[in-house]
Measured scan of single mutants.
Amino acid sequence: KKTCTFCKKEIWNTKDSVVAQTGSGGSFHEFCTSVCLSLYEAQQQ
């Protein structure tokens, strides 16, 4: 099972999830929504 990098909820429907390359290492992270992605990126600043 996949979990959201930001909120840690399980991702049930992968077509609704967002995968983004974030951080200095350029690793890929999966998020349940684009909202979680935005919040995660804001936290990394």
Rank of each mutant, 00 (worst) to 15 (best):
K1T: 09
K1R: 03
K1S: 05
K1E: 08
K1M: 10
K1G: 07
K1C: 06
K2L: 10
K2P: 02
K2V: 11
K2A: 09
K2W: 01
K2D: 10
K2R: 05
K2Y: 08
K2Q: 12
K2C: 03
K2N: 02
T3P: 03
T3Y: 14
T3L: 06
T3A: 04
T3E: 07
T3N: 12
C4K: 00
C4L: 00
C4N: 00
C4Y: 00
C4H: 00
C4S: 00
C4T: 00
C4P: 00
C4I: 00
C4M: 00
T5R: 06
T5S: 08
T5Q: 04
T5K: 06
T5G: 06
T5C: 10
T5E: 09
F6T: 13
F6C: 03
F6W: 07
F6E: 13
F6Y: 02
F6M: 14
C7N: 01
C7L: 00
C7R: 00
C7M: 00
C7F: 00
C7P: 01
C7V: 00
C7I: 00
K8P: 03
K8A: 05
K8M: 06
K8N: 10
K8E: 07
K8G: 06
K8W: 05
K8D: 10
K8Q: 13
K8L: 10
K8T: 08
K8S: 11
K8C: 11
K9A: 08
K9C: 02
K9E: 07
K9L: 06
K9G: 09
K9T: 04
K9S: 08
K9M: 06
E10L: 07
E10M: 09
E10N: 06
E10V: 09
E10A: 07
I11M: 11
I11Q: 05
I11V: 09
I11T: 01
I11C: 13
I11Y: 09
I11S: 06
W12M: 15
W12T: 12
N13F: 06
N13H: 08
N13C: 02
N13I: 00
N13T: 15
N13D: 11
N13S: 13
N13Q: 15
N13A: 15
N13E: 15
T14Y: 11
T14R: 12
T14E: 15
T14F: 11
T14P: 15
T14S: 10
T14Q: 13
T14V: 06
K15W: 04
K15L: 01
K15Q: 11
K15T: 14
D16A: 04
D16M: 04
D16C: 01
D16F: 08
D16V: 04
D16R: 05
D16L: 04
S17I: 06
S17Y: 01
S17P: 01
V18F: 08
V18Y: 03
V18S: 13
V18Q: 11
V18M: 11
V18D: 12
V18E: 14
V18N: 08
V18K: 14
V18W: 02
V18A: 13
V18P: 13
V18L: 08
V19W: 07
V19A: 12
V19F: 07
V19Y: 11
V19P: 14
V19E: 14
V19M: 11
V19G: 14
V19R: 13
V19S: 09
V19D: 12
V19C: 13
V19I: 03
A20V: 09
A20R: 14
A20S: 13
A20L: 06
A20I: 03
A20N: 02
A20P: 14
A20C: 02
A20M: 04
Q21I: 04
Q21D: 10
Q21G: 13
Q21K: 09
Q21R: 10
Q21V: 04
Q21L: 06
Q21M: 06
Q21F: 04
T22I: 03
T22S: 08
T22D: 15
T22Q: 09
T22M: 11
T22F: 03
T22W: 02
T22R: 10
T22C: 10
G23A: 09
G23K: 10
G23C: 09
G23D: 07
G23Y: 01
G23T: 07
G23H: 09
G23P: 07
G23M: 08
G23S: 13
G23V: 08
S24T: 11
S24Y: 03
S24R: 10
S24W: 05
S24V: 10
S24F: 03
S24K: 09
G25M: 09
G25V: 11
G25S: 09
G25T: 08
G25R: 12
G25Y: 02
G25W: 01
G25P: 11
G25C: 02
G25D: 10
G25N: 04
G25L: 04
G25H: 06
G26F: 02
G26W: 04
G26K: 10
G26P: 13
G26A: 12
G26M: 07
G26L: 06
G26Y: 03
G26H: 03
G26Q: 09
G26R: 10
G26I: 07
S27K: 11
S27Y: 04
S27T: 14
S27H: 10
S27W: 05
S27D: 10
S27M: 09
F28Y: 06
F28H: 15
F28M: 12
F28L: 13
F28A: 15
F28E: 15
F28P: 15
F28Q: 15
F28S: 15
F28G: 15
F28N: 15
H29L: 05
H29A: 13
H29E: 10
H29M: 09
H29N: 15
H29C: 05
H29W: 08
H29Y: 05
H29P: 14
H29V: 12
H29S: 12
H29G: 12
E30G: 10
E30T: 11
E30H: 14
E30P: 11
E30D: 15
E30N: 06
F31M: 04
F31P: 03
F31T: 03
F31H: 03
F31R: 02
F31Q: 03
F31Y: 07
F31N: 02
F31E: 01
F31W: 03
F31V: 02
F31G: 03
F31D: 02
F31K: 02
C32P: 01
C32K: 01
C32M: 00
C32I: 00
C32V: 00
C32S: 01
C32A: 01
C32Q: 01
T33G: 14
T33E: 10
T33R: 07
T33A: 11
T33F: 00
T33C: 11
T33I: 01
T33Q: 14
T33P: 05
T33Y: 00
T33H: 06
S34W: 02
S34T: 09
S34V: 07
S34P: 07
S34E: 10
S34Q: 13
S34N: 15
S34D: 12
S34H: 08
S34A: 13
S34R: 12
S34F: 02
S34K: 12
V35I: 04
V35C: 05
V35M: 08
V35A: 13
V35K: 12
V35W: 02
V35S: 12
V35R: 11
V35Y: 06
V35T: 10
V35F: 14
C36D: 02
C36M: 01
C36V: 00
C36T: 01
C36H: 03
C36E: 05
C36P: 02
C36Y: 00
C36F: 00
C36K: 01
L37K: 10
L37A: 12
L37I: 03
L37S: 09
L37H: 13
L37W: 06
L37M: 13
L37E: 13
L37D: 07
L37G: 12
L37V: 08
S38P: 04
S38F: 01
S38R: 11
S38C: 06
S38K: 12
S38M: 05
S38T: 08
S38L: 02
S38Q: 14
L39I: 06
L39S: 12
L39V: 08
L39A: 14
L39Y: 06
L39H: 08
L39N: 14
L39E: 15
L39M: 07
L39F: 05
Y40V: 04
Y40C: 07
Y40M: 10
Y40D: 07
Y40E: 09
Y40N: 11
Y40K: 09
Y40G: 08
Y40T: 07
E41W: 01
E41Y: 01
E41V: 03
E41S: 05
E41M: 03
A42I: 03
A42D: 08
A42W: 03
A42R: 08
A42S: 12
A42E: 13
A42T: 10
A42K: 14
A42M: 05
A42H: 06
A42V: 06
A42Q: 14
Q43E: 13
Q43D: 11
Q43H: 12
Q43A: 12
Q43F: 01
Q44Y: 04
Q44E: 13
Q44L: 08
Q44H: 11
Q44K: 09
Q44D: 14
Q44P: 10
Q45K: 15
Q45S: 11
Q45H: 14
Q45R: 13
Q45I: 07
Q45M: 01
